[in-house]
């Protein structure tokens, strides 16, 4: 019997697949062993990637072989990293605030600007453009379909937002109920939200089913290859 690398990897994959499937009987040591190994391997791999693809080429190399400007630009993140490392000490944790403030502030600025310019405004514009029938016809969509899509998107957005309006006023019997029109709109919005969550669940199920199919296919291939070699 010749042990080929594909055979070894196939055996390991099969074993770990069974360990994960053991979760069907509940949380058990076999499942935990598999999870711990995955977590450890992933952490080690991430550390190696961070060392060889981040620290060495982006920090150590410019500091050693770079020009003066590169050294200066590399020294700044190095100093920030050292400050963050000081968070291990409760007394020196305050030193990292400057670096953390810079990271959080810069990150917030980038995120907010990107969300506004890349999602919020384009999505609002797209919702409005659903009623641009000529534009819809230009891309091959009939006016009726375009108008219907527009209405669904419009009411779906409105009703979904109304659903999250929880303002209520007390009634004569002491119960707290929302305004009638808002209550109806919230009920319609709940339908839209349900459909959306259903679609997402279907996608999650489809993704999980595809993963299951791939795993079963790999087991089948392993066994077929294994027995085929015999």
């Amino acid at each position: 019997m010749i042990f080929q690398p594909d055979l070894i990897t196939g055996v390991i994959s099969f074993i770990f697949t069974l360990l994960i499937f053991s979760y069907l009987i509940g949380d058990n040591p076999l499942f935990r062993i598999a999870v711990y190994i995955f977590v450890g391997v992933s952490a080690g791999y991430v550390a190696a990637i961070a060392l060889w693809q981040v620290i060495v080429p982006r920090l150590a190399y410019p500091l050693v072989f770079g020009s003066m400007n590169e050294k200066i630009f590399a020294a700044i993140p190095l100093l920030g990293s050292l400050f963050i490392l000081l968070k291990v000490s409760s007394r020196m944790a305050g030193v990292a605030r400057m670096t953390m403030a810079f990271l959080v502030g810069t990150g917030a600025a980038v995120i907010v600007a990107g969300a506004v310019m890349g999602t919020l405004i384009p999505q609002v514009g797209a919702t409005i453009n659903f009623f641009d029938l000529n534009a819809a016809v230009a891309v091959g969509i009939s006016k009726g379909e375009a108008f219907g899509n527009g209405l669904v998107v419009l009411f779906g957005a409105i009703f979904s937002l109304v659903y999250f309006h929880f303002g209520a006023s007390p009634k004569a019997d002491g119960s707290m109920r929302r305004f009638g029109l808002i209550e109806i709109a919230a009920w319609v919005g709940r339908i839209f939200i349900g459909i959306t969550l259903g679609a997402i669940f279907a996608g999650v199920y489809a993704a999980a089913l595809t993963a299951l199919i791939e795993r079963i296919a790999s087991i089948i291939n392993f066994f077929s290859n294994l027995f085929g070699n015999f």
């Binding site: 384009p122 797209a126 993704a207």
Partner: peptide
């Protein structure tokens, strides 16, 4: 496939040109 419903609006807003999901 699980991310397709959330990416679809970007296609509808013509920010992206195509989606291949799952």
């Amino acid at each position: 496939a699980q991310a397709a419903p959330m990416i679809q609006p970007y296609f509808d807003s013509q920010q992206i040109n195509g989606v291949v999901a799952g």
